[in-house]
Design a protein around this nucleic acid. Structure first.
Lengths: 229, 229
DNA sequence: AGATTTTTATTGTCAGACAATGTTTAATGT
DNA sequence: ACATTAAACATTGTCTGACAATAAAAATCT
């Protein structure tokens, strides 16, 4: 019985496919902030039926990547300047916790120290290539490594959720202005402080770094932000 | 045309109804942690069809109140001791931020100061009545007031999400042992410190309070926690 | 008993229909 | 012409029924 594969696409579950495609489209900026999402469009675009699409949309709503307007559909979420600042306030204290814990853990984790150094080396090597996206990805890997070293199973998810609405802004900033050297210096400083083994200082270094990033992003012009809501 | 109300229940959207009912059942403990949720059961229990139920489940999954097991359904999430500790680490730094910011804001917000004092008074009054649930609700109101005073639009949602999996534990703790006086003393101290106007001290007081709460919950016996995963 | 196949239960997906609601356009009254 | 109201339209929300895909349980064979 070697029939053709039928309508239900067997490669990947339709709901995950829809969810993944939507996340991709949103954080890449292909769906502009404020843009309305119509179920009918998504059906034809993704070739899955309403069920999985609606499930994916609810999921994205819960992660506050999109906002639901009853009987009107969903719109891609748009951060106001204030929300951005609020988000960074949270990221700052959470990042501080992450660095502090990682420092404590690394004290007796040689493999971790090696891995962290490697991530930094990779980051510095990439700073010469001009490609922004690969640099952003590498810096994400550095951050995620630090998060995993902090041995807090909840933290990475919280950080990811807080960061999602603002990665587009970060990328836009990097593309328009070349802050890569400053960022590299920051990553290097945090890494060294963490490896030095003083949790308090590591926490402070990470908080400084995040504050600096916040200040940089705040220099973006008004039309990158939601002024209405 | 005064026909009977048809199948589509017009009172409240079915998806919200399902979501609300499920949240209620989970955080109240009516659905025990680890319990499996079958769509068919939920359909007959809530009298809504699969669509809305599945949307609600996806939403709950995104909020990590339940965990999805592909083709096997969902189970009510169960915190391990480690996850509980991790969660409190996050709540501690976030709570500290909240208290610090609220202190700054209250410096020039008389109405806010009055409201905060009122919330504390209510809390102290309720401490005499034995009803645990109303006390827990009042303490939630106190905390939420402080969150709103902190003027961080993102913070309340993050805190709510982190707290959801552990409120049952909190309630269980309060019912088994009478820590209400200690808690009251804590709330009073934090409130006074916040009103005193020193952000640093307020932050520290709140962090101490949350750490104490974490230590109390950690005294619960093993069978309140998930030992396997 | 242990491994292999069949059965069964449940989730995952699709399609079509209609209800509920919000938006736009047309009709109406002044 | 203008504002108000009513009809038409578009889109989401819900229900139903059917079937596919998968995992767990039961039955079968060696």
């Amino acid at each position: 019985m070697h029939q053709e594969t039928r309508k239900p696409n067997a490669d990947r579950p339709a709901n995950e496919l829809a969810y993944g495609a939507l996340v991709e489209s949103i954080i890449s900026g292909r769906y502009a902030p404020g843009q309305r999402l119509r179920e009918a469009d998504l059906i034809s675009e993704l070739s899955v039926s309403r069920g999985p699409i609606r499930e994916a949309l609810r999921r994205l709503e819960a992660e506050s990547l999109i906002r639901a307007e009853p009987h009107r559909g969903y719109v891609v979420r748009w951060l106001s300047r204030e929300e951005l600042s609020n988000t960074y306030d949270l990221l700052e204290v959470i990042g501080g916790l992450c660095a502090r814990r990682a420092t404590e853990v690394l004290h007796h984790d040689k493999a971790g120290r090696v891995a962290l150094k490697a991530a930094l080396t990779e980051l510095k090597a990439l700073s010469k290539d001009a490609d922004i996206m690969t640099f952003v990805e590498a810096s994400s890997r550095w951050r995620e490594l630090l998060e995993s070293l902090s041995r807090n199973q909840i933290l990475p998810g919280v950080v990811a959720q807080l960061r999602r609405p603002l990665v587009q802004l970060q990328i836009r900033l990097m593309i328009r202005q070349r802050f890569v050297p400053e960022m590299i210096a920051d990553y290097e400083k945090v890494t060294k402080t963490v490896l030095a083994g003083n949790p308090k200082k590591a926490e402070e270094a990470m908080r400084d770094h995040i504050r600096r990033a916040a200040n940089l992003i705040a220099t973006l012009p008004d039309n990158d932000f939601n002024t209405r809501a």
